[in-house]
């Protein structure tokens, strides 16, 4: 109950900043349109809509990392949070209270992305629904990453870390822009140990209707999502007591 009340407050804070929400929803749309335009003007098949869309849907969630990091970092510097620290709310209540309102926004973002892809030629199949549902565990990972960063750093620092560093990491190590097999070696090894590539591979498998291809990628995404959420709770608890 306490957690849901806090989640309700977070939802209101988010929805009353419509510009940020609109930018979040439109972010993958812009990238998708841009890359589709590039594909239309080059002779090689680099950004085919069928494999590009799941990658962009996942990449778009890096905005949720930035968003959640800023939300929690900004809150941490406010006097309201000092008041809330004196209430029976626990660190788990805070982390879940920040996560829950951001999940539907993430799903909405992927819906916008897939709808735009349909207009650009993506085949409409029942698997689209699956792809939009499977974005949920991916979004939990991205949100948890943001909450961990927002618990560790202040609101100025998270802009650089989540906005530039993590967005680039998510882009380059996900296999969205190029086939990771082409690079191979240590680069591919590192990418395979991180969840970005697994999230994209999982989305691609679902979109193709290859449900067996979801594994083991789903375990990587769930594992990272759970571990980062737990870490965020631990770090948030420590920061609460400082």
């Amino acid at each position: 109950m306490r957690m849901l009340t806090f989640a309700g407050r977070t939802s209101k804070e988010i929805l009353r900043d419509p510009l940020t929400v609109a930018f979040g929803l439109g972010f993958p749309l812009v990238v998708l349109l841009l890359l589709s335009a590039i594909q239309g003007n080059i002779p090689v098949s680099l950004f085919e809509i069928q494999s590009l869309t799941p990658g962009i849907a996942v990449f778009g969630l890096s905005f949720m990392t930035l968003f959640s990091a800023q939300l929690i970092a900004k809150d941490r510097s406010s006097s309201l949070i000092q008041r809330l620290y004196t209430t029976p709310l626990t660190a788990g209540d805070y982390i879940l209270g920040y996560t829950l309102p951001l999940v539907p926004i993430s799903v909405l973002q992927s819906v916008v992305c897939y709808l735009a892809a349909i207009l650009l030629g993506l085949e409409v199949t029942v698997h689209l629904m699956g792809a939009m549902i499977m974005i949920i565990p991916v979004s939990v990972f991205y949100i948890a990453l943001g909450l961990l960063c927002g618990s560790l750093f202040n609101d100025k620092q998270v802009g650089g870390i989540c906005g530039a560093l993590l967005t680039n990491l998510s882009a380059w190590l996900s296999g969205t822009w190029f086939d990771l097999n082409l690079v191979g070696g240590a680069f591919k090894k590192i990418a395979s140990l991180l969840p970005f590539m697994h999230a994209v591979e999982m989305e691609r498998a679902v979109l193709m209707g290859d449900w067996s291809g979801v594994f083991p990628h789903l375990w990587w995404v769930l594992g990272y999502g759970f571990a980062l959420s737990l870490l965020a709770v631990i770090v948030f608890t420590k920061k609460m007591k400082k």
Binding site: M1, R2, L4, T5, F6, G8, R9, K12, E13, R16, D17, S78, S79, L80, Q82, R83, L84, T86, T87, P88, L89
Partner: peptide
């Protein structure tokens, strides 16, 4: 924490929530 109420030094209200919503937030917690 269940026994105390705190009004911190700086005005600790949620600026984007209405007066009623601020009170409802505390009531829910």
């Amino acid at each position: 924490k269940k026994m105390i109420g705190v009004s911190p030094q700086e005005t600790a209200v949620a600026p984007n929530l209405t007066v009623r919503e601020n009170l409802e937030l505390m009531a829910g917690i």
